[in-house]
Design a protein around this nucleic acid. Structure first.
Lengths: 221, 221
DNA sequence: CGGCTTGTTGACAGTGATCAATTGTTGTGG
DNA sequence: CCACAACAATTGATCACTGTCAACAAGCCG
């Protein structure tokens, strides 16, 4: 954890005169949609929010799942218009930071850390892209689970026994897989004794093996 | 073309005391590699540079192809360490902008436009991700070609008759397809009279149809 | 209880990866 | 300038992964 990797609490400290106390959103609520003009950054304090796009033909693609500490609305920093939709998956508290306040702030700190956050998001998106383009279904699912568990751990939450707020379908839309394939690959991991599942409740029994499956490259090309 | 979408000339104007005249790199040259510490942004003035990663097992994934006006090194803005390799595909002139000069500059302009550029890059990466996760091989190839042509057009270059600097293999590594599939899909587009190819030389005969193929969603899920 | 959404499992088929062979292209050295 | 080597591109044949279709089970909520 380096100094550039600001956390939510850090954010609050640096911007405490800009950040509100947060609003509570329930499952199904939308913070903003494609095409909306955004003049602020959203900070997820608790809960999970899915970021997704809809193609002209109505297909959904999930860009990422935002968890506590994550920022929403970064995609709009280019022209101020959101390229994505948002939907709350698990009851969430979300604060906002007006962009104007960050820009005008004579301290360059805010703008700088915001840029670092975007750069990190870009790197995560690149990894997402790489997994989707090269990995088999089994690897993708294992990668998703291990990544999700690591995110929980990084936030100090229990990482081997948790409830996932998203449906199988949403996992599929994130990984580029059909629902049935997600279901089957999860079943395989259970049979191999790597995890235990009860619908959305996941228990990771063998994290090391899970990571192995996630990284085990299946030579393509 | 909006005001936020800075161009290379714009960049030079705003930073003329920081930007060098550019160095010339030949095919195969590397500007920087994974793990290198970067303290500057690279600006491609001419030529094409591929940005790619190598997994532990030696597989290559191409993140994007950088063309005139594109910036390199954005991925390192998080922690100053490059996450990607670079390789020149077509003889290129590349300038650099020291990060320190952008940060210290009391005019906030530079940092702001840099952020906009990252945000745009993030959006492009999201689209890349979406295409890879949802589109069939034919759509991916058509999307790649139309996107490449549009990039050329946006730079005022001839967009329906050009040489591509990358190999079929590199197109495959960018799109998540095997070389043979790329070759076959290009052949199909030729048979349909949409384009004409002679190795790396491409002539687009029917751009409208090309875009149609690129967008024609093949219902997945 | 009954309807609806979500998840699971099976059968089947299709897209695209892999293997293999051939041709075309580029570059190098005699 | 030609011969040869190395690489890039193409084309064909085969096979496997995973998407699709279908049926069913399991939760969830009115």
């Amino acid at each position: 954890m380096n100094a550039l990797n600001i956390t939510q609490s850090h954010f609050n400290r640096a911007n405490k005169h800009f950040v509100d106390n947060g609003n509570v959103y329930r499952e199904g609520d939308q913070l903003f949609r494609m095409g909306d003009k955004l003049d602020r950054i959203y900070v997820v304090n608790s809960g999970v929010v899915k970021l997704f796009t809809i193609t002209e033909s109505g297909e959904e693609h999930i860009v990422r799942f935002c968890m506590p500490g994550d920022l929403l609305g970064l995609e709009a920093l280019g022209d101020g218009v959101s390229k994505t939709n948002t939907m709350v998956l698990s009851i969430a508290n979300v604060s906002t930071v007006p962009l104007a306040s960050m820009m005008d702030n004579d301290s360059e700190y805010d703008l700088g850390s915001l840029m670092e956050r975007i750069a990190n998001t870009l790197n995560q998106e690149t990894e997402h892209c790489m997994i989707i383009s090269q990995a088999t279904a089994g690897r993708r699912v294992a990668w998703f689970l291990s990544q999700y568990a690591e995110k929980l751990a990084r936030r100090g939450l229990i990482a081997d026994n948790f409830d996932m707020p998203m449906t199988r379908s949403e996992i599929g839309l994130y990984l580029g897989l059909a629902v049935e394939t997600v279901s089957r690959e999860l079943a395989k991991l259970c049979k191999r004794g790597i995890l235990h599942k009860q619908l959305k409740h996941i228990e990771i029994l063998d994290f090391a093996s899970l990571k192995t499956v996630a990284q085990n490259t299946h030579a393509l090309h």
